[in-house]
């Protein structure tokens, strides 16, 4: 059981004068319970990868297999695009979230919608009858995420799920991801990996359509060189320790948490003296 992408390549406008390679020879595997982070600058191929994994695009070379089958089985791979709240169409929050499970002919569509709304912290009793167009930005994002969760996907792909949210909205989306992960594999595309690093199982960094780094979070912290050479910015707290190490500070393991990082730096400096 896994979502497996093997050696994917994709070129937009293939065969025309405007052909532009977006992705070359990228592989990844996502198993239930995992959280894979895909990072990379704008234009690095993240969105193309997401479209290939969900079956919206067919790769020019390589394969995508979802539990051993070609992608496309409705509801199996859930995808939350950037700013999904711009796609509401129903008159109430509940109807909008119900759209997916009803189309999939779930006998318990209403339960699926309720569970999904609860998991994003918006109980149906309070929010079900609201018009989705009157929600705050953070609430709207959570309803859009709930709309995908309600289809109970085995694999959940999220493109910048926390961009533009305040702390409360972001924490609610992170909590919903944690719940979804209990039964699904989750892949998050983000510009801002800091918030996901403590819970991620694997990081895939793309640069100009190719894999610049692929490994666990601890492997990334051990040797962030390839990640940085790909032009990706490490979070400040990690970078401070990497820079200190470059100046001769004896730092064996890099901390993610600012308070632990301060202790690490303080200890390294004491040794120096």
């Amino acid at each position: 059981m896994a979502l497996v992408a093997d050696a994917l390549s994709y070129t937009y406008g293939s065969g025309t004068a405007f052909a532009a390679s977006a992705l070359a020879n990228v592989s990844l595997a996502l198993a239930p319970g995992e959280l894979v982070l895909v990072v990379g600058a704008t234009g690095s191929g993240k969105s193309t990868l997401l479209r290939l994994l969900s079956g919206l695009l067919e790769p020019d070379a390589g394969t995508v297999l979802v539990d051993g089958e070609k992608p496309g089985r409705p509801g199996c791979v859930g995808i939350v695009f950037q700013n999904p709240e711009t796609q509401f169409f129903a008159e109430t929050v509940l109807d909008d979230v119900l759209f997916g499970p009803r189309n999939l002919r779930f006998v318990d569509a209403e339960d699926a919608a309720r569970e999904a709304l609860v998991s994003v912290g918006l109980p149906v009793e309070r929010f079900g009858d609201r018009s989705p167009f009157t929600l705050s930005g953070g609430e709207a994002r959570r309803v859009a995420v709930a709309g995908v969760l309600a289809m109970r996907p085995a694999y959940l792909l999220l493109d910048e799920p926390t961009a533009g949210l305040d702390r409360e909205g972001r924490d609610a989306v992170l909590a919903a991801i944690a719940v979804a992960r209990e039964r699904a594999g989750v892949l998050v595309v983000t510009h801002d990996p800091e918030q996901f690093l403590p819970v991620a199982t694997r990081v895939l960094a793309l640069a100009s359509g190719a894999t610049a780094f692929d490994g666990s979070v601890s492997e990334l912290l051990e040797d962030p060189g390839p990640y940085e050479r790909a032009g990706l910015a490490l979070p400040d707290v990690i970078r401070a320790q990497v820079l200190a190490r470059a100046r001769g500070a004896a730092i064996s393991s890099i901390a993610l948490d600012p308070v632990q990082a301060a202790a690490t730096l303080a200890k390294a400096r004491a040794v120096l003296r």
Binding site: E194, P235, D236, V237, A240, P258, V259, A261, A262, A263, L265, A266, R269
Partner: peptide, 15 residues
């Protein structure tokens, strides 16, 4: 911001 937390934790450690 994480960097501001790092700076204040360093201050707490006497740095």
């Amino acid at each position: 911001p994480p960097l501001a937390r790092l700076v204040s934790a360093l201050r707490g450690a006497g740095l």
